[in-house]
């Protein structure tokens, strides 16, 4: 994967993300933040790669610790967000799509 492709992906994701995220109402800012927080645990992918590709035992051990930490972040983050979102109920039946 060339660095150029990565840079382009980074810029594109930022631009599209900016548009989508700006549209989230303040009502949902906490779940949004906690959902994004869970998503930042995606670094578990890098940890997994490092955990098998590192040539030294120390490297593999450290990366495995990173796997566990990131996984806690991902799991707890999404579950907590889910619990929060489930509490949001509309009074009238006007469910916005």
């Amino acid at each position: 994967m060339s660095a150029l492709v990565l840079v382009i992906a980074c810029i594109l994701a930022t631009a599209v993300g900016y548009r989508l995220l700006g549209a989230v109402p303040s009502l949902l800012h906490t779940p949004l933040m906690s959902g994004m927080n869970a998503l930042s645990g995606i670094t578990v992918l890098a940890a997994l790669l490092a955990a098998v590709e590192s040539p030294t035992p120390l490297g593999r051990a450290l990366a495995s610790v990173a796997v566990a930490l990131a996984m806690v972040n991902v799991t707890a983050g999404f579950v907590v967000t889910h619990r929060m979102l489930r509490m949001f109920k509309g009074g009238s039946a006007k469910e916005t799509a």
């Binding site: 994004m36 998503l39 930042s40």
Partner: peptide, 29 residues
């Protein structure tokens, strides 16, 4: 998010870079 995106550059993972960037943007907004 920024840390995750940088880690993505370090292991050259497209998904990680893109998602990290989105999270970084969310926090900034």
């Amino acid at each position: 998010g920024v840390a995750a995106a940088i880690a993505g550059f370090a292991v050259k993972d497209l998904l990680l870079v893109a998602v990290g960037a989105v999270v970084g943007t969310a926090g900034l907004i």
